[in-house]
Amino acid sequence: MNTSQSVPVAFAWLLATGAFADESKFQFIGRASDGGSVVYEEHHFVSGTCRDGIWRPTTHSVEYIRPEDNRQVFATKELDYQHSPLRPEMDFQQPEFNESITVKQANDDTLAIQWRTPSGNMEKFNVSFNDAVVVDAGFDNLVRRHWDAVISGDAVDFRFLGPTRGDHYGFIMEPVVTDRTNAAHTIRIRPSGMIARFLVDPIILGYNQSGALTDYIGLSNIRASVDGNYTVHIRYEITRQPDCELTP
């Protein structure tokens, strides 16, 4: 073995695979109100890397806490971005309703979903996907991927996974003017299909100049009861900034 050749070759391989990317942390807290008091908090812990000066998430943990309930964790979510920043694998647990949702990538074009419903039933779906499909918090990375469009006023089409429905649906992400937030940039996410527009209310997102989420207004993933989820305004506060830029 020629050592003088193998060392630079191995070094080049490490650079190409990103092995020297700097690890970094991104942490923030969201406080969700339903028109008055805070009904729960989200504590986000994101690990990632800085590659070429840009933040790239790898894993993301969320703890859901009710402030008035001795600050006990009542739900959790784990996200893994190993396959794509837009389609993380997900494990969501809300034990008080005996509910869980998992989304795994079964192969290169299929998502495997398991939903344990509050009634105790287990629903399973296999859903085909392409590069336009976004899963859960992948929408946040979608916004940053299209940051130039966001700040210039352009619309972006994508598809969003509804895990409890076993399908994904067409949506449009577009800038909007609203007095509901003080964010530097405000985005509306709405269904693109005519029928879905009458069934699904738009979601409003706020971002600061650096590309960090400041506001979420819309339907929550947290159940208020067995019959439905909260509709909330979540205001986010960064507690630890990553060591690089969030947007290109």
Rank of each mutant, 00 (worst) to 15 (best):
E123H: 01
E23V: 10
F160K: 05
T239K: 03
L205I: 13
D34I: 09
V46A: 07
V232N: 07
M1L: 14
R165S: 11
R240C: 07
L205H: 05
V103K: 01
M173N: 02
T247Q: 07
G206W: 10
F74A: 02
P88T: 01
P248I: 02
S128H: 03
E96Q: 09
A106G: 01
Y216H: 10
V103H: 00
S152W: 00
L213G: 02
T102K: 07
G153E: 05
A16T: 04
G36T: 04
T186Y: 03
L199I: 15
L161N: 02
A212F: 10
P175L: 02
A32D: 06
H168L: 01
A184Q: 13
G53K: 05
L14T: 15
F74L: 06
R66D: 14
F97W: 14
G35F: 06
R188A: 14
L111P: 01
N229K: 09
R144M: 03
E23L: 04
G211W: 05
P242K: 02
G162E: 07
A184M: 11
E42F: 08
D52T: 10
G48I: 09
F20T: 15
A106E: 08
I172N: 04
M173Y: 00
V134P: 09
N70L: 11
E245H: 13
Q27V: 01
Q114F: 02
S192D: 15
